[in-house]
Design a binder for these strands. Structure first.
Lengths: 345, 345
DNA sequence: GCCCAGAATGTTGACGTCAACTTAGCACCG
DNA sequence: CGGTGCTAAGTTGACGTCAACATTCTGGGC
């Protein structure tokens, strides 16, 4: 803690004592009114409420937190909140948390290495939040830092799976659906543009693609690899579209798939006539791509809700959630215009 | 506060006293070590650090907050965090805040009406955070609720402009650049697909488009209106592309512009040969649209940094920021493939 | 009018931290 | 070797809230 804030406390607002004074009651009675206890005479309650209103009183959450040992806040740790997947998950976590009376405190991990994560956890952990949600922890492993004991944690799409309860889309089935759909259209094989090697969902999709092809008696070709961004999809795409033998590509997410589409246009390779493309996520814009993108939809909304549920359940009843519990959310193959049978040879 | 959390305080972690006991020093000495005071003998410091490490001690932020009157957290209020603009701003706010040792607490406003905002402010206000950032407050006005006095606030793209210090892209200039660019290509007029009527930036862009046309001696045609989503852009787009007299459209954001592009493809209307399109924002995917989207880039990153700066400056020196201060961030016209001279008649 | 049960309200103390003040320890000086 | 001037470490109290306990009402029964 290097910063110097707090050296000159900012002007504090009215406290429970101020309200009590104005209303002519004790602080405890004010507390009771604030907490909606039922053993307060209506007349008294009214007087207190008016005093609160007049002073603009709001309970001091720090004091409450100190007293109760609870913060009313859930920590959310991620590398970034700007990418589609994270943004959607964040939004749904916020909504679900708020429905339960919790707010959400964000912390971005700046340095991808374990140190950054350690720092983030240090800052959020244990004392500032009642529980922790970790999404897309890609670059570090659970051994690299210790979380305070007893702090409820839930993770999504991260390498912490198996160490903490986890929520995630059914990557395996979603991938199989996509690959088998392409094979069903008549493609001889399906190529793969994967996500970064340190990402759990990327590797799971990669592995499932691999297994599905093998299951169909096809020897899997070499994979391309991107970093989830459209830019990386475009760059890999330039190589992919230059290879005329490629007729179908399963791309690990929609952003990269859209980048690939762009590369195809640029090279004059027609989608889906010459090349079929399937993405993963079903982000809003996929529907409006040219052509509209066939993709595997995952339910970010539900993921957020489940993450919050897992944390709050641990909070309510410690030990009620197994550390290796996995919530697998079904995916749906959304067929649009970017897939078709392979071109006649 | 309806929830019942806190009734059974969760097991607390080690406190400063525990560390002190183990290290054989007083609590104050532990505090000094924790706060990196320099008047501690190295040997003592070492002993304390080891005790901290052994117990897994982290300072209790609630107690700190109570003591200091500061929380080390900035509140961020918005309707959603999932949309492009909000997500990018959120990310940069988080980064900027963290650089200053602050975390960010999110609160989504569920009901768009004033009540929802009031509720949000109630919950975040005054006690849970040291300052407040409000982005895209579209549906309510500043009069509809009161913020606690003395709470630093900064806003962006909201109708609170003029009431609180504000950060935002230079909509006026950005719009003028776009419209004049299209006119310069030879278009007789420029149509407009606007954002929602209750949005401040939408109305500013609308007004600037209007004025620019008038300035060029052109009577502005009727506007279409969307809700920022690609879907709404697509729907308006179906009408727009059906009108053969439209040769150029200035769209209030990229998402809608991409929706419009999709409608154009569907109708067989070629972009840019038959129809020129300009968006606003320059989101990642715009570059990879088909054709790549000409757009007005705004600097979300800088916006986040400025918002945090404004809040922290008020915190450091109350009264040092005027309530009507405006930070206007320059925009850049990014010319890509979606714009061209009008078709020959 | 008096007593009593139960409801309403008040009092006390503790949550963990740290600024401000106080005391102990030590080196150096004449 | 006592004193001086530091530095290091300890003690105290207050931040705002609320559970637990203590006290004071209130109204009803006799």
């Amino acid at each position: 803690m290097v910063s110097n804030r707090g050296s000159r406390p900012r002007s504090r607002g009215p406290s429970i004592e101020d309200v009590a004074g104005l209303a002519g009651v004790s602080a405890q009675t004010v507390s009771r009114v604030a907490n909606e206890a039922d053993n307060v005479r209506p007349a008294t309650r009214e007087r207190v409420l008016q005093a609160m209103d007049r002073l603009g009183y709001t309970p001091n959450r720090a004091a409450r937190a100190l007293r109760n040992g609870a913060f009313g806040s859930i920590g959310l740790i991620a590398r970034t909140f700007a990418r589609t997947g994270e943004a959607l998950t964040t939004q749904s976590v916020v909504e679900a948390a708020e429905a339960q009376g919790y707010s959400v405190t964000l912390l971005a991990v700046r340095e991808p290495e374990a140190n950054g994560w350690r720092h983030a956890v240090q800052r959020l952990s244990h004392q500032a939040v009642d529980g922790l949600i970790i999404i897309r922890a890609e670059e570090t492993t659970p051994e690299s830092f210790l979380l305070p004991r007893g702090l409820p944690v839930a993770v999504s799409d991260s390498r912490f799976i198996g160490y903490y309860p986890d929520v995630g889309a059914d990557q395996v089935q979603g991938t199989r659906d996509a690959v088998e759909y392409l094979l069903g259209l008549g493609h001889r094989t399906v190529h793969h543009l994967a996500g970064p090697a340190d990402s759990e969902p990327a590797m799971t999709r990669n592995a499932s693609w691999h297994r599905t092809l093998e299951g169909a008696g096809i020897s899997p070709p070499a994979v391309w690899r991107g970093d989830w961004t459209a830019q990386s999809g475009y760059e890999a795409g330039r190589e992919i579209v230059a290879d005329a033998s490629v007729t179908a590509v399963y791309v690990a997410n929609d952003d990269m798939a859209l980048g690939l589409l762009s590369a195809a246009h640029e090279a004059g390779r027609r989608v889906p006539e010459d090349l079929s493309v399937i993405g993963f996520d079903d982000i809003d814009l996929s529907r409006f791509a040219h052509p509209p993108l066939t993709t595997v939809r995952q339910d970010f909304d539900r993921a957020g809700r489940e993450l919050v549920r897992l944390v709050l359940q641990q909070l309510a009843e410690p030990g009620s959630v197994r550390y290796d519990e996995r919530v697998l959310l079904p995916t749906t193959l959304i067929v649009r215009g970017s897939t078709a049978p392979p071109p006649a040879p």
